[in-house]
Simulated assay, not measured.
Amino acid sequence: MDLDTLGLVGYILNVPSIARNILFLAIGIAGIVGAFFAAMTRDDAYDAAGRQNKWAWVAIVGVSGIVCLLRFPLVAWFGAVAIGIYYFDVRPQLNNIIRGNYGW
C-alpha cells in the first residue's frame, strides 16, 4: 500500500467523528436558540401546560446547548435529549396554549 491509499483510509475512518462533531454543533446551536425561545415565551404558558417554570427551561436548554457545543463525553448526549424534549414536546404544547388550541 502506498501513502496515498493510507491517507484515504484515514480520512474515511474519520468521517463518523466529523459527522458527530457537526451533529453536536447543530444541536448546540439549536439549544442556544431554544433557550432564547424559552426566555421569550410567557410565564403563564408554562404553568398552564403543567411544566417546569420558564427559567428552569431556559437553564435546561441553555446549559444543554453549551454542553453540546463543548462536546463533553456522555453528558452531551443527555443535553441533546433535553433539547429534543423541549423542541418536540414542550414547545409545541406551549405554542398551542398561547394560540388557544386546546383540542385533542
Rank of each mutant, 00 (worst) to 15 (best):
L94I: 10
G50D: 10
I22L: 15
S64K: 03
A35L: 05
G79F: 05
V75F: 08
I98N: 10
T5K: 08
I27K: 00
A56E: 02
D89I: 08
N21I: 13
L6R: 12
R42K: 15
W77N: 09
V63D: 02
A82F: 15
W77M: 11
I97H: 05
G62C: 04
I22S: 06
L69V: 09
L70F: 10
W104M: 09
N53D: 13
V81D: 08
I85S: 11
V75N: 01
N101C: 08
L13K: 06
D43N: 12
R51K: 12
V58F: 06
V61C: 03
T41Y: 01
I66W: 03
I27G: 02
G65M: 07
A38S: 08
A82S: 12
V75C: 01
L74E: 08
G100L: 13
N21C: 06
A35P: 02
L94C: 05
Y86F: 15
G84C: 05
Q93C: 09
A49G: 15
A26F: 13
V63N: 01
R91F: 14
F78A: 15
A59D: 02
P92K: 07
G65E: 09
G79V: 04
A26N: 05
I60N: 01
L74M: 10
D44G: 00
A45V: 14
W77L: 13
G10D: 13
W104L: 11
V33L: 14
A38T: 08
F36Y: 13
P73S: 12
M1R: 05
V81C: 10
A26C: 11
F24E: 06
L23T: 12
Q93F: 07
L23D: 06
K54F: 04
N101K: 13
G62F: 08
G84E: 06
L25F: 13
V63A: 09
A48S: 13
V15C: 06
S64Y: 07
Q93N: 11
F78Y: 11
R99V: 10
V61P: 00
R91M: 15
V33A: 11
A59Y: 03
A45T: 13
A38H: 03
S64V: 03
I12F: 13
L94S: 03
G34R: 07
A35T: 05
M1I: 10
I83V: 09
W57E: 09
D47P: 00
G31F: 04
I98F: 00
F37K: 14
